[in-house]
Design a protein around this nucleic acid. Structure first.
Length: 317
RNA sequence: UCUAUAAAGUCCCAG
């Protein structure tokens, strides 16, 4: 069991949910009975693969095999449902855990709050916050990260700031994730100046930004129609020793498109391939680039790119 | 004490 569970866990870490399930069948046919940890690892493998149906099926298998589901099981399952966009089912799993006498912990609650975040359900997330506190479960930065993210999705940047303050009142300082989420909340609310303020506050607090932080800030410039500032962020990002990734380039090209700077968009596009290491353009890149060219009335260039895609065997709609 | 298992943030378009 130990060995098989270990292998399943490795598949999970590699994002190979199908192989994890294969190993499961293999162990069963070899006469080795999976235990609770095996199942939890399997559910987790499905979680990372977005396979919520399989995750639910595994819980059924577990029951039939007479293996008890614990807080790890339910947390992984809720997370799998969350990643699959199944908020209702995630709540059902949560209620089932309560019925079964499994005590939810901060991971369980935070995962469920992520499901709320995906749908921009701030109030439902706040109800969970109250519920967890009533049960004596302490929120952490994952919890607040999820709540801030819910505000972001709902376009309620003011409430995102309120939650950030509440988090601080509870003695937490915020980390790269909560700051990046707050920047994204500003971005969605069209508050690019505030996004920069948050970024400065983050630096003053000594919290190290990540690529995600910079990408979120560039995106805030994009939404605010501030292409020049987006380039400024791009420069400081590189000066700070970060390696721009595909999100960075795509956000930059989008910023160019929004400001009608199709030449700059093309320049960035070319820069991707020359960057070290080279960054491959993806579908988003091309859509953003076509957007920029189209807005700049460069129809012949659009046509050329689309023809190139067709030649490369892509389906162009 | 050691152990094989769980959670949050960033890109175009659409919504």
């Amino acid at each position: 069991v130990y060995h098989y569970s270990n292998v399943i866990s490795t598949c999970r870490n590699a994002g190979e949910w199908r192989r994890a399930l294969d190993v499961h069948s293999e162990m069963v046919s070899a006469g080795v009975a999976p235990n609770q940890i095996t199942y939890n690892s399997l559910i987790s493998a499905c979680e990372t693969g977005g396979e919520w149906r399989n995750a639910l099926a595994l819980l059924g298998d577990m029951r039939r095999a007479g293996i008890e589901a614990d807080v790890f099981t339910y947390s992984a399952l809720i997370s799998a449902l969350e990643k699959g966009g199944q908020r209702e089912r995630a709540f059902e799993a949560f209620e089932e855990a309560l019925r079964e006498g499994v005590r939810p912990n901060v991971v369980t609650f935070s995962s469920l709050m992520c499901a709320c975040a995906n749908d921009g359900e701030i109030d439902q997330g706040l109800e969970l916050l109250a519920q967890m506190k009533a049960l004596g479960v302490r929120p952490n930065m994952f919890t607040y990260g999820a709540l801030i993210s819910a505000c972001e999705k709902a376009g309620e940047w003011e409430r995102a700031f309120e939650l950030d303050s509440q988090m601080r009142r509870e003695g937490m300082d915020g980390n790269d994730v909560t700051y990046s989420s707050l920047i994204s909340a500003c971005e969605k609310g069209g508050q690019w100046k505030l996004a920069f303020e948050v970024f400065e506050r983050m630096q003053r607090a000594g919290v190290q930004p990540t690529n995600v932080t910079y990408n979120a800030l560039i995106s805030a410039c994009h939404k605010g129609g501030q292409a020049r500032r987006a380039f400024g962020v791009f420069d400081s990002m590189r000066k700070a020793g970060f390696t721009p990734d595909e999100y960075t380039f795509n956000a930059l090209i989008s910023a160019c498109a929004a400001s009608g700077e199709w030449r700059a968009a093309l320049r960035i596009y070319k820069l991707m391939g020359r960057s070290e290491p080279p960054v491959k353009p993806n579908e988003v890149t091309l859509n953003a680039l076509l957007d920029a060219l189209w807005a700049g009335r460069q129809y012949h260039k659009c046509a050329r790119i689309m023809a190139g895609l067709r030649d490369a065997g892509h389906v162009v709609g």
